[in-house]
Design a protein around this nucleic acid. Sequence first.
DNA 1: TTGTATGCGTTATCAC
DNA 2: GTGATAACGCATACAA
Lengths: 333, 333
Amino acid sequence: MPTLQDVANLANVSTATVSRVLTGQTVHTENKEKVEKAIKELNYKPNTVARNLRRKKSNLIIALMPDVKHQFYSEIIRGIEEEALKAGYNVLIGSNTFESDQELRHFELLEGSQADGIIVGTSQVKQELLEEVSKRKPVVLVNGHLTGSNIPSISIDNERASYVMTKHLLQLQHKRIAHVMGPSNTMLARERLKGYKRALREAGVEFDKELVYEGDYFFHSGYEIGKRILTVQETVDAIYSTSDEMAIGIIRALTEKQIKIPQEISLVGFDDITISKYSYPSLTTIHHPRYEMGKKSFNLLLKLLNNKKIGKKHIFLEEDLVVRESCGAAQST
Amino acid sequence: MPTLQDVANLANVSTATVSRVLTGQTVHTENKEKVEKAIKELNYKPNTVARNLRRKKSNLIIALMPDVKHQFYSEIIRGIEEEALKAGYNVLIGSNTFESDQELRHFELLEGSQADGIIVGTSQVKQELLEEVSKRKPVVLVNGHLTGSNIPSISIDNERASYVMTKHLLQLQHKRIAHVMGPSNTMLARERLKGYKRALREAGVEFDKELVYEGDYFFHSGYEIGKRILTVQETVDAIYSTSDEMAIGIIRALTEKQIKIPQEISLVGFDDITISKYSYPSLTTIHHPRYEMGKKSFNLLLKLLNNKKIGKKHIFLEEDLVVRESCGAAQST
DNA sequence: TTGTATGCGTTATCAC
DNA sequence: GTGATAACGCATACAA
């Protein structure tokens, strides 16, 4: 591999001049041309590692997500990537689905100056670790927030979105609404449960904990929960699944038993993943602005990277209720 | 940020000794302890950029994929990541769905020594560029291969898999089998078409180009094609969609019109993505060993990184026919 | 505008 | 086994 020195030799100028040409500083046209010719001739590519060491900046950021496979996160990533590209940053995507020390490896990259900042999209990382790292490097949280923390974060208002969704069902005269939540040890799942409860309370419908089912957001748990709900079907008007994937698992379980959605039971999801439009029936759901969230999370990080002040510590994005086929008015019994 | 020098000062040893402790070389126990104490006290983290410059190695590889969003690719990525982790490598995932110069940026990282090698999972990259880069850096192709090229690659035998799938349909007595292909300008789509044709020929069924539809592997194109097929429904026994996503779009289109699958028309897909098990009906499909493919592609790259010889230039993986509900025997007309 | 010289933080090569 | 020192490739302060 040719180096800057080689180029300088061939062009008969100093390394400084070559460097100046590379970084677009003012250089006499003749010299510039000589340098460019030499670069081409040698097929020279700047060594970015050396450059980064010198500049103390890598222009690389890390996006740490719990699961790249899940469409939910891949859209966040797309948003991050697109904005990062504009700002001249590369994105290293980390998933911490495997052993927990993989996650630490990503923080090592950060601490080792191989990356300039990190966007964390997972609740699996210990808060202490995050707080500790954020003292030294820019950290942004996406799709969640830490109570009593100074780390900037961005998410939708899950409590509110859940309230909106539940209210929609209540306005359609549903009373017995099953709530399919995510892992109950996560704040996200608990917030959505809270919104559900608030809507019930407001409507004067009593909360029944028998109607709460706990899943893991994936197809299979929806399918299993769907089968369980079938055993108590006559007591349920509608099902509110807090992920579209689970909702699709539920569709499968109900359809297997010839239960018609929404005629016999209404179903709504949460997230608005691509397939929700093509399922049968298509899903009424909450459109989660994941792509937007990804974009904004990077912009937040960029501000930190440039030492700019961030106003609010936590940013809430607007969600949208998307009405499709899977949910109709309650049949008058 | 404390440096190795700081540690050396505090521990009263030379930087060389500190470096030796860090890299696990033999050092007297007492010195080792002093150094470790100093490291802890200063909360020292090695600067990997400097290390990489010195070692001329980044332990970072790039996985360049056309679309991270698509589950097909995210499984390949998972396989790559898992193996990379074992070998102590980090993975920078690049997607070239956006402007084409983003793709070049990833190659710049490679040429700039910020990454040690690249796994390319997209046919969008120009072959010349690939050949050029592979002279200097390890390159592996995944999910495809280049004719007359020395670049190692790994994929399933798409022609054969397609032949197997078509034969399955023919054995169920289907004769008029619609073929929903991917973009006809890609080798992958053409190979699958070839396999389909070969099976027909072998069975003595005449190929009818009217039965060939071109999509883009995504839900929506399947949905649109499904609607088009409905207009000539009576002439079609079965539909062979070369992606599960398109197949699910087709299910939606047919279900909307109350067409029963497989009773009125059989449908098969290709890929075996997660949802195919939960769609209604569940999809008969070809299980594509994407995860395995990701793993093996990294192991191939690892060999190149270690300057080991690679036997075969192209590796074929075995595919599996997965029989589910969407496909049954032809009704005797 | 240009060149010289130095340093970024680490590892490798020497002597000792 | 250890320490001094050079080198990795580049960018920049300073002098010219």
